[in-house]
């Protein structure tokens, strides 16, 4: 079983690298957010698998915390762009009014 965990870990790590590449390359900022989000999910899986690999399954608490926390950042991103767009629209309206 050991080597299966190991192979899975390696696959997840490589996927992490791909996500990092996407995060570095962009080109839009949303690609980067996507990379972060994906990286977070991969971290959850990585921890879950590796806690079996090292035989310390009580560390699954961590994975649970990640799974719960990881997506809050994306909500903040959505709120950030929403408020920015509303502000820009307001500015545009004001300029049009002048």
């Amino acid at each position: 079983m050991e080597w299966i965990y190991f192979v899975t870990c390696i696959a997840i790590l490589i996927t992490m690298v791909l996500a990092v590449v996407r995060g570095l390359a962009g080109p839009t900022i949303f690609d980067r957010v996507l990379a972060v989000n994906m990286f977070g999910t991969k971290t959850v899986l990585f921890i879950a698998v590796i806690s079996f690999l090292t035989g310390r399954p009580d560390f699954l608490d961590l994975a649970l915390a990640y799974a719960l926390i990881n997506f809050i950042g994306v909500f903040a991103v959505l709120l950030f762009f929403q408020s920015r767009e509303v502000r820009r629209a307001a500015e545009a309206e004001r300029e049009a009014g002048k």
């Binding site: 995060g23 957010v33 972060v36 990286f39 971290t43 921890i47 090292t54 560390f59 961590l62 990640y66």
Partner: peptide
């Protein structure tokens, strides 16, 4: 966004090094 990735990597690394408490905080 990249520093988000940074902390995730760091947390995974803490975990690999068996420092679970730190990893949880970092996460």
């Amino acid at each position: 966004m990249l520093s988000g990735i940074f902390s995730l990597i760091m947390a995974a690394n803490f975990f690999v090094l068996d420092a679970a408490d730190v990893a949880l905080t970092e996460a």
